[in-house]
Structure formats: structure tokens, C-alpha cells
Design a protein around this nucleic acid. Structure first.
Ligand SMILES: [Zn+2]
Ligand SMILES: [Zn+2]
Ligand SMILES: [Zn+2]
Ligand SMILES: [Zn+2]
Lengths: 150, 150
DNA sequence: GTAGACCTTGACCCCGACGTCAACGCCAGC
DNA sequence: GCTGGCGTTGACGTCGGGGTCAAGGTCTAC
């Protein structure tokens, strides 16, 4: 099949397929007229790539899976190289999720506090002193030109 | 103080401060020689920006907080506009976290299955048929040129 | 033969938050 | 007066994953 058909079957664009080819990820054979030719295996490889992309893999990280499939192995993750990528991505993912979870927690607390202060006219609870308006000047050392404010 | 000192105090770079100024987020007064001049309030504003940036806010999303502080309000999130941003970011965050959680789950399952198949020489369990090597050809309709493979 | 649906390469554009020069001005100390 | 460390503006590069022309070649149907 040609590039447009493959793109349609895989739910992507021709530009994307040319991009993958330029990156050496999904090279295409050529017909007499110079048109790219693909077969069903390419569709399979492409499908693997898109799946991992949807998982948040970078393009380069899909390469072991594609190579594995191209080697004729039963599935893209049959090779240790693919499993290594899995494990690395899982660690990354855990780290990111944990980080976001903590951020979410902090932000939720900030919002709750701010809403409370907004409803009642209470004085702001103590937080990082630098994100508040100045009340009593008790800042760190200052440069020699700080009082030269226009 | 001058740009370098502010950058050092805030743990960022002069390039970043010029960028913020170009975006209208942290404009600077100028001395006679054309040098940018900052005071302690700028440090506070900058601190608010960096804090939110660390939370994953885009630069534009920090603007309500900065405006709020600049208006003399007790904290950057004293204004409803800031609270709206909080709420929007929380929703985004929840969505992202949930998505990542699901991806993590799927990937973990894939890894477990692949490891199992690697240890024992079992046939691959059924998954999306397109990410596996072909066994019995039973694909969908094909274009008129699929058999013309070189 | 000609429209128009496909294909080709090449080139530039996009996003965000800066990094990295280049070429120059200002100011301190010696 | 000269070096070195600051500052200035401007312009271009980065990263990933493509989008969007533009100018032309190919093939099929009418
Ligand atoms: Zn393999
Ligand atoms: Zn702080
Ligand atoms: Zn306010
Ligand atoms: Zn599938």
C-alpha cells in the first residue's frame, strides 16, 4: 500500500510517516515511480509505535519495540531491551505521579486556606514569607543600592 | 538592586528576568545608565512566580498572582482571579494524574506479562492483534497494490 | 487531454521557557 | 589607560512531533 492508505489505516498522517522514516524508525521500500510502499507488517510496526506514543513514550524509546517486532519476535516486548524501557518508564512514571500528587496536595491546601481567608476577613496564615505583602521589614541583607529607589 | 543580584537572590538567571520583562510580567525601572533596577517587592513577586512555575504553572497563569501581590493584597492568592486559576489547575492536575495512573497500570501489566513469557517459553497471551507477529493471515481488505511487494 | 487525487522533496512554522552567542556600553580598581 | 566584571539589545538555537505550504511528478477516470 502507499503512504496515504497506511496513514488512514493507522489513524495518522502522511507527514508523520515521513517523519518516522526520516528518523529511521519506519523506513519504506520504494516503487518504480519513487512512491513509498508499505505492507501489513509496517502497519503492525506503526501500530506499536502509536500505542507507545499514547503511553507517553518518546519516539526513540519505541525503537527497541519496533526492532524486536521486525526481528520476527512474537511481540514488541519480547526482547530484554524493550523490558528495560518498560522498567525505566515505570520508574519515571512513578516519580512523576508522586511529584504531581504532592503538588496537588499543596495546591489544594493553598486553595482551602485562601478560600477561608476570602470568606472570613481573617489575617493571612503564615506561609513562605516572601510570597506575602510586606508588613514589618525584617528581610535579609541588602545591597548598597537598595535605598536608591526612584 | 541590579539584575544579576536579583537573579542570584532568586536562584534564577538574568536571561530569565529579561524574558519575564519582555512578557510584561516583571517590568523593571531603569537607572540613569539604563541598567534595570529592582527592589525587595520585585524579589517577592519573582518568588511567587518561581513557586508557581515549580508547581507546573505556565508563565501566563502566574500573572493574576503577581498582579494581586502588586495591588498590595496580603498574598498572591487573595484575589478571585488567582483562586480561579488554582481551581482550574487542580482539575487539570487531577485529570493528568488519573491518566498517568491508568497508563502506569497498563504498562505494569504489560511488563508483568512480558516477563512471564520471557521466563517460561509460553505462547504470547492475546492482546491487540496488531502489535504481534503474524500467525494466520486474516487481515482486513487490502488495496490493489498490496501483492506487488518487491 | 485534462481534471483531480495521489505522490515526491524541500522549506519554513509552531509551542514554552529559556540558553547562548555577538557586539557593544558602563564603571571599578590598579 | 587598561583589564575585568557587570550591564545592554538583538538574534538565533534548543527540544519533539509534527503542521503547512509550494512546486512539481504520476496515475486514473472521464
Ligand atoms: Zn524481540
Ligand atoms: Zn519561599
Ligand atoms: Zn489580590
Ligand atoms: Zn490496537
Amino acid at each position: 500500500m502507499r503512504i496515504g492508505e497506511l496513514a488512514r489505516k493507522a489513524g495518522t498522517t502522511t507527514r508523520t510517516l515521513r517523519y518516522y522514516e526520516a528518523r529511521g524508525l519506519l523506513p519504506a521500500r520504494r516503487g518504480e515511480n519513487g512512491y513509498r510502499r508499505y505492507d501489513e507488517e509496517d502497519l503492525r510496526l506503526l501500530h506499536q509505535i502509536r500505542l507507545l506514543q499514547d503511553f507517553g513514550f518518546e519516539l526513540e524509546e519505541t525503537r527497541p519495540f519496533v526492532d524486536c517486532l521486525r526481528a520476527g519476535h512474537p511481540s514488541g516486548d519480547s526482547c530484554p531491551a524493550s523490558l528495560d524501557v518498560y522498567r525505566r518508564k515505570l520508574d519515571e512514571l512513578d516519580a512523576v505521579i508522586e511529584r504531581l500528587r504532592q503538588v496537588r496536595e499543596q495546591m489544594g491546601a493553598q486553595l482551602a486556606r485562601a478560600e477561608l481567608e476570602a470568606s472570613a476577613q481573617q489575617p493571612p496564615a503564615p506561609r513562605c514569607e516572601l510570597t506575602q505583602a510586606p508588613s514589618g521589614r525584617r528581610e535579609q541583607e541588602r545591597g548598597p543600592d537598595d535605598d536608591a529607589v526612584e
